[in-house]
Write a protein that binds this DNA or RNA. Structure first.
Lengths: 227, 227
DNA sequence: ACAAGTTTGCTAATTTTTTTACAATTGCAG
DNA sequence: CTGCAATTGTAAAAAAATTAGCAAACTTGT
């Protein structure tokens, strides 16, 4: 669960030469989204590549029953929609703006043309995609191997290091439960224990991770023992 | 857990124009591996891109305690090692040959040069990488949402549709347990129930999925009910 | 065809997690 | 300031999964 946001490596935009960066910005349309505004839904087949300029976005799925499972959080420099455009399948996740967010949007055909003309673009996208795959594998591994308490800690760490986040994580414990795929009671117990250990501070509708490094450290030691 | 093998889309090799396909084969070295032979280990930083020509490979991690968790299975036309070469980080998974396997190996520098010269190569790699990411997200979703019985069924389905596989899946229940990250007893119960339902037939060191479509059907109905 | 080593099927005891239910707390709207 | 709705903390019971252990079934090498 090592995150999709506190990037292990550079983001797509980081990987781009300046010239290309400028070209993209020139060719795309800047669109602003308010916090919690839906950017697009699972199943859409709008062919648009989105690049986050500022703010952030969270990816997840809304269940038929209104539940929500968060899959990942994206920050500035990261992209989404390229799967839809390049592979030609409908979007698999709902995307929601995380706070005031500015996104650069490029129509699919224009983007693919740019890719053809500028091999560097494909290469940057490839690198960021490979990095993403790597992280997903790490996350899957964590999900299978780590006990509930550690998994919860890891999620908090991911959220704490997310872009557009103050110290206080404004999520309800029910949200966290959905995200982790465990019960609210279990979350309550887990965060309770973490709070006991002085790693986090609990509030109403929010959790404070004052010292992410400390939490990370605790987690690392835990994982070490487990393996 | 929708597979990394019964490809949802085309494989890397499928995406390649014939000319490039031939070029790669000409530039690479064919290497044969016996069944269960270790191709490379987690942590290696050998810079080699591997393309499976025939046979297959399974990716996973060996724990310090000798345990093994399978992450995915790759078949002909699929690649691995590109992460290492392009991003420059050590390998994250142990790869083991699945039966008699022939692999085309390209040294990293040669591969990156080819990528620079042939943009089509980057593009094919990009598509297959995006497809892989998509599948991983599906798998993660399944892991969080599906109960143990369904997860087991899904794994069997994935394995049954894997390349290099006869009707009989030659895995011990302990193998399946490792792969699913659950206990052997739980697997035993799960496959027992599936056998009761007539969806599979149990044997010694192997499981027969005579009618994958039927199993798929059962799973679909189950998932529908769950959501 | 036998002995040795795996693998499977089961059981019982234990641990973990979920469910259900309810009280206490918090923020907010009026 | 007060009452309401949402959120959190907790406890007890139920369900699910794990561990540990053992006997029976099965392969294989000799």
């Amino acid at each position: 669960m090592n995150t999709l946001l506190s990037q292990l490596g550079p983001t797509f935009m980081d990987l781009l030469p300046d010239a290309l960066h400028d070209l993209l910005v020139a060719q795309g349309t800047r669109v602003r989204y308010r916090g919690d505004q839906l950017i697009h839904s699972r199943g859409d087949d709008s062919q648009i590549v989105s690049i986050i300029l500022s703010g952030g976005a969270r990816a997840g799925t809304f269940g038929h029953d209104g539940s929500y499972t968060m899959t990942s959080i994206l920050g500035p420099g990261q992209t989404f929609g390229e799967f839809t455009v390049i592979v030609g399948l409908p979007r698999s996740l709902d995307m929601v703006a995380l706070g005031e967010t500015e996104i650069l949007e490029l129509p699919g055909p224009k983007f693919t043309r740019l890719c053809d003309e500028q091999p560097e673009l494909s290469k940057a996208l490839l690198s960021s995609s490979l990095i993403r795959t790597y992280m997903l594998l790490e996350i899957m591994d964590a999900m299978r191997r780590l006990p509930l308490l550690e998994r919860t800690a890891k999620l908090l760490l991911i959220l704490a290091e997310a872009p557009m986040q103050t110290d206080h994580l404004n999520y309800t414990q029910a949200d966290l439960a959905f995200t982790l795929g465990i019960s609210r009671v279990s979350v309550s117990k887990a965060v309770g224990r973490l709070a006991e250990l002085g790693l986090i501070t609990l509030g109403y509708r929010n959790i404070l991770v004052k010292d992410p490094a400390k939490l990370q450290n605790w987690l690392d030691r835990r994982q070490h023992l487990a393996v």
